[in-house]
Design a protein around this nucleic acid. Sequence first.
RNA 1: GGGCCUGUAGCUCAGCCCGGUUAGAGCGCACGCCUGAUAAGCGUGAGGUCGGUAGUUCGAGUCUACCCAGGCCCA
Length: 1117
Amino acid sequence: MERDPALRPPSRRSEGARQVRASRRSALRQRPSSYRTCPQQDVEGRGRPLPGHDGQGCALRAGLGLPRLPIEWKVEEGFRDKGKNKDEIPINSFRRVCREFAEKWVKIQSEEFQRLGMLGDWDNPYTTMAFEAEATIAAELMKFALNGTLYRGSKPVMWSVVEKTALAEAEVEYQEVVSDTIFVKFPLTGASSGNLDPHELLGASIVIWTTTPWTIPGNRAIAYSPNIEYGLYEVTAAPDDNWAKVGDRLIVADSLSENLKTAARIEEWQRLNSVSPDTLKYSHAAHPLSGRGYDFRVPLLPGDHVTAETGTGFVHTAPGHGMEDFELWEDKKRLLEERGIDTAIPFTVDAGGFFTDQAKGFTGKRVLNDKGEKGDANETVIAALKDADALVARGKLRHDYPHSWRSKKPVIFRNTPQWFIAMDEPIEGSVDSLRDRALRSIRETRFVPASGENRLRGMVESKPDWVVSRQRAWGVPITVFRHPERGEIAPGPKFGHSEELVARITEAFRTEGADAWFADGAKERFLSGLVDDPAQWEKVDDILDVWFDSGCTHAFVLEQREDLQWPASLYLEGSDQHRGWFQSSLLESCGTRGRAPYDAVLTHGFTMDEQGRKMSKSAGNTTAPQDVIKQSGAEILRLWAMSSDYWEDLRIGPEILKANVDAYRKLRNAVRFMLGNLAHYRQDLRVFPGDMPELERYMLHRLAELDVQVRANYNAFDFKRVFQMLFNFCVNDLSAFYFDLRKDALYCEPYDSPTRRAALTVLDQLFTTLTAWLAPMLCFTMEEAWLNRFPSDKGSVHLRHFPDIPEEWLDEELDRKWRKVRQIRRVVTGALEIERRERRIGASLDAAPKVYIAYQELRAALSGLDPAEIFITSAPASSWARDRRMPSVWTRWRAWPSRSSWLRDANAPAPGRSPKMSAAIRISPISAHVTPRRPPVRKAQGCGSGGIGDEDGDGAGRGRARRSGAGHSVGEFQARYDRGPRLPDPRSGKQAVADLLIRHRREGAGDPCPVLRPRHGLEPRHQLWPAAAGLRFRPLGAHRVRPRRLHRAGPMAVPPGDAARRHLRRPHHRRRHRQRHRPHRLWGGGRFLLHADLRLRLVRVQSGRLLGGCRGRRPSL
RNA sequence: GGGCCUGUAGCUCAGCCCGGUUAGAGCGCACGCCUGAUAAGCGUGAGGUCGGUAGUUCGAGUCUACCCAGGCCCA
């Protein structure tokens, strides 16, 4: 899966043809990669335990593919610091150090993932270096050896002569050097018919240009471009001693001809004719050194990489000395063989930079010496060309050239033996090739987003044979033996004892690790008894490409554990892994099992800054995940990942994070509100939906609606939609609507009023459902909320399935009706706002709106509803009435206006925005009369001696409860609880209040108010969720006793008092306030608070409770 | 240069497949309200030439072509 960000194999990036390429990703560039998958992977893992997915859960199988190469660098560096050379160290000692180094990082990275709240089997992570894994990887490779697709070929690699080692692209940096350049003639010896008579071309020469004269002995072809116009030129005037003589006929790109003319000191020449691509197509030339051991045909090949920017428009092609040359050569292999041309790539340069005997006439000459300086090869070759009369011109060029990142010395491209897996050979025992199988599997795989399919297919279609060997030390070796004379490999399709050999190797690796391959006497140990003479066989010491390692994860992860199934449901990685893990896994599995190891592939983009640019240290726009966690907490990071469109590139930065912090608070507070009120809930208060008021049934309908959508979007991996949906629900439907409407009922209605009971039932359902839906995203917060309500050492919100929502809750008619109600509500709030501007009202309760509705159907929407309740306003006095539908319920404070008195046709123009309806606001006679705007300090009825005063006397005694008139007296309140059987949950705060009230009375303590302040005495589990303790509950009529001072006793900083904060909102008071209360400014943003909050959660995580619970009990598979 | 992808309000995202009212949410911002979610809560408002240009069409955010900007993988 994800590799350590700091150790991720750097990938090749081009930054322009001539620019210096970054040799490594900068440290900063690497860091953000740990954003890449974690939250998505985890939410995906958590979102799965859904009914409909076989009822099974799914957990992340923690795994770490090891970046072999960077580890090897690091270890090498360590040795060099101690003055030791890698070559001097026994290979197995070196490998041991690598292993220890890797183990350290596995631990660190595992901890980082856990900090993010990722669920996973952290006690048993898989790594590609576990013995079991190494044995499996070797066994998988040997399957390819047995099915006939593994073969030994050759390929040019970047080679450092100084270090005598192959280098990866990432180990190379570009430096400016001065090179010898030469123009060389290749006389045409055969031409196909095009626009020219072939005879006219015979005797003419193709001119090439190169900066590496030493590659001429390796030349096997000339590349041209079908898009360039070429001309045939005849030299008519030149100095006598010139290399290009009068009468020479040269073929060159027209746009570059002047270039050549100048370089070759040609005074005059004449363009004879154009040379069309058709003419060149099947032509061939002689090697410039023909007659000196280079007597072969040099074909002309069309190549897309040929440009008319520099040189002559023809590219000298030495397949052993350049990637493009090699690819072109391989690409045209079939055609060349048909033309009778030997396609073998010569090994002209050895590991020391010396010409081999395959470079005839130059054997022993050297390209680069031990110090990385230029050898005698170039000069010798140039002299030979001059001698052969093939040289047209020579010069010098300053340009960028690859150098070893460590030694800073130039490198060369050099053909080396490598191991390949054939893409197009039929696999033994089957008719199709690896490519056929892979392409078929791609069609059968689900890609999210769908464009991933095109991308992967494009890459597989054009992939050359898979190179699986690397000349390194640390990794799993290519476990085959080779008979150099017969070219046979063991194990292999023709080798008689393959089965036994594979068993021996696998068994040895399983117990000793891959080091067994490099132990002394390994060859004899594995081959004895299976071959006549082990000495005739050669042990291959190449290391397997890391991509092969990672491509085998499915084999050693999924197949070797009973609780996991093959194939995997999903592979998830960054979109760059189309070339990496997705592809190597696909190929490996297709080769050995005939299909992809996954049913679906999910990709995500990369993390950018707020402007969508790459993060880089120099641009100063980096945001490291670790810093986000440190500052805002892991939840914020998770939320960010979820709310972003991860299919594309992700953006992150201070502003975006701030938005997520706010969103987080909103969600948290919605949950907290529910939690606080549910402290009073008991199962026997439960009401059946059929017995609920319409508003409650409407909320259940909304929940059922969401249920369908949330499940669908989790299934579609569209987390951002889930988030938006749930967030909007919490903000619009709950916070701004339902909670706001039902506060009165929850706080003020009698304990067992039907409305209150129904509201609590709905809250319970909302809580149960929302915690489950949000748990994959806000795993810490939801866990805490859940355990707060249902404390348990073993339980966890993450062990739950999404609750089943009965379909019967869906009620489209109700939905239509309440849409209209909310439409009317918006008109009223708009009208209220006008009155507010005029300073005629403050709270909505100061108003008694008259709503004029022209349309019958809109009017009908309000039938049976209490408008005052819906608009949170006061109702006309005349409408005070008892509920006719529920006469048994005591609701004397409640207004039930008759429809006729309240709704009228809008004949007269009324203030408002919509012609369909409008609202006229008048000041409520009731609120104005019963509770003046600044009420005098009142004494509550029925309070013992002293009574309860309005503590701060700022008129804050106003509240919605005043709508009910005098409200309950404490006596009434108490009477209710004296009845006994209806006592609430003994744990709830309400019970605590009741108990204390009773005790106070018995003891004659008088003032019951102090009991409303027990905040400081909360149990620890209530500390984070003060409302959960239910202590906000106050009996009606008891005046507000705000435990404000108690806030100050808390461990955190202190907010400005209410009065002070109100001042803050009036601009002319702000400045003075700021001067006075400067220390309080800490509170301004609220951000600090949030952090404190999250830190508290962290403590719990670190104490192991959350993770402990998850770890032992992740959902079984 | 090639393959794949993206561009809608200050931010995060809908709408595009299948062209059709005045392009929608939420956040943020501005202005207010409330003080019994208060480390909260509620309301109202401003804010968009839908990356650009051309084309198809009665009509284009939506379809087509090109261009610009950005990303990943390759050359």
